[in-house]
Design a protein around this nucleic acid. Structure first.
Lengths: 108, 108
DNA sequence: GCCTTACGTAAGCTTCTGCTTAAATAACGT
DNA sequence: ACGTTATTTAAGCAGAAGCTTACGTAAGGC
């Protein structure tokens, strides 16, 4: 989980995730859309796979990557739990702020 | 925003955020609850402040830190947007998975 | 079998991170 | 002014991260 958070903190990896969320893509197809080299992309894919965010499937000589919804569900739960760890009241605080701002009051 | 994501990817920093979410705490009080040294905590606080996740207030010789709800709101929006970037359908996919699992079918 | 295609893995380099100890700064009390 | 308390800043280090080039491996085509 820790791993997943670190994984999505990297911009290239977020782009990869967005790409493979719509279609299943081969490593090469993914790499083609990046400035960085294929091995670099391959390494990112490994990180994402180990974080449980993508799944791999072999098709002949190619490897197809796709999003792994369960991984995302887990990550979301983790974040929800984190927000809830006392940060729950933040929502209320933010809303109060919002209300005050709308009434033309200065932010604290 | 990028910064905020990286900030919460670090375990110590998440703990710090949880701590200051309930009470406003001084740097020293925070450091007291950690194994790492005060300067290390101070550096984490700098990262959190630059990421917009905490606010600092001076009180005499001390510096009190508190959560900055707006920062969290922004981070959440960013993540929502990210999930939405085509990952929106994941929710549905996950639910379908769930349904299949319940019916005793193998996960793909 | 041999060549090609599509990958990952290894090795090595540079930059970033998280940490420590030591020194600087800021506000206060006397 | 001086010392004390609270905290940051500086310097430096070890390990991690992201990248590249070079090499290894696996599946197919001929």
């Amino acid at each position: 989980m820790e791993e997943a958070l670190r994984a999505i903190a990297e911009p290239h990896r977020r782009r990869i995730l967005t790409l493979v969320s719509s279609n299943e893509l081969s490593a090469g197809e993914i790499a083609a859309r990046f400035e960085i080299t294929r091995p670099a992309v391959s390494q990112h894919l490994t990180v994402l796979r180990e974080a449980g965010l993508v799944a791999e499937r072999r098709d002949g000589t190619r490897r197809l990557y796709r999003i792994r919804p369960e991984g995302f569900a887990d990550l979301k739960s983790f974040l929800e739990a984190f927000w809830g760890e006392g940060l729950e009241r933040l929502k209320v605080a933010a809303e109060n702020e919002e209300g005050r701002r709308r009434r033309g009051r200065r932010a604290a």
